[in-house]
């Protein structure tokens, strides 16, 4: 571990839904530019953690610092503007808009003050991003007509348009074919090379192993492991949680 100060530093995050404890004092820290896998069985609290970090729901207790600022009280759109951007497990495109129209929303509302690529023109920036994810030739088609893998790419492109420092990719590959999974992994590597730290939430272990430098394991709302991927995969507790006794 380096001594570099973390980009995201969340401490003892708790979230209860009625009598059910979804998150029980979870700590998570991400360094700038890092690639982290967040894994765990269904119902272990991964999505709840994503929601708490991105501001879709607020945590009951705990502190979240991002880029040196306390953000646990900020609404989701302000966290997006600061640079925590998430994608959704089930793609949520703006269906009344074209593909490029989807991107102009974060470009206009989140990324206004940090234009990239030497252009401040929303359309040009959107086209550059679509080029990156391979949707350039679909730019002016209605987003409602995209295929499943294209929707995942649009979801990522829209997140990139918000100019994230930390991208939380919530099961971007669920339901995709092997070759499509590879495509998305390559895409995430490309984004990471641009300096974006990425948390990948995924059930496809192959993808997690190929992509992440570090893995965090949640089981029943508790963090049970947080180490390099090879160490985590051999951790007795993790094996037990996944495979049973």
């Amino acid at each position: 571990m380096t001594t570099q100060s973390p980009l995201l530093d969340a401490m003892s995050i708790r979230k209860r839904f009625g009598g059910f404890v979804a998150l029980d004092a979870v700590d998570i820290a991400i360094r700038p530019g890092e690639r982290v896998g967040l894994i765990g069985p269904n119902g272990s609290g991964k999505s709840t953690l994503v929601n708490c970090l991105s501001g879709a729901i607020s945590s009951d207790t705990g502190t979240i610092r991002f880029d040196g600022r306390a953000i646990e009280r900020l609404p989701a759109h302000q966290r997006t503007r600061l640079g925590i951007v998430r994608t959704f497990q089930i793609p949520l495109p703006f269906t009344s808009m074209t593909v490029i129209g989807n991107l102009t929303i974060p470009l206009r509302f989140a990324a206004r003050h940090h234009a990239v690529g030497g252009t401040t023109n929303d359309v040009e920036q959107a086209l550059l991003i679509l080029e990156d994810v391979g949707l350039r030739d679909k730019a002016h088609e209605p987003s409602a007509g995209l295929t499943q893998v294209e929707l995942r790419k649009l979801e990522l492109a829209r997140a990139v348009a918000a100019r994230p420092k930390l991208l939380i990719a919530d099961e971007t590959m669920a339901g995709l074919s092997n070759s499509e999974v590879d495509e998305i992994i390559l895409l995430l590597f490309k984004l990471n090379e641009q300096g974006i730290a990425i948390i990948m939430i995924e059930h496809i272990m192959r993808a997690v192993m190929a992509f992440s430098q570090r893995a965090i394991v949640l089981v029943a709302g508790k963090k049970i492991a947080d180490d390099t991927t090879d160490v985590v995969i051999n951790n007795a507790e993790v094996v037990r949680a996944y495979l049973g006794e």
Partner: peptide, 20 residues
């Protein structure tokens, strides 16, 4: 544009930086 994003999907709009 922001209102249209809210109409399509409010959660996605908020997460794209729209002050819904």
């Amino acid at each position: 544009r922001g209102l249209a994003a809210i109409r399509d999907n409010e959660l996605a709009a908020e997460c794209c930086g729209v002050p819904t």
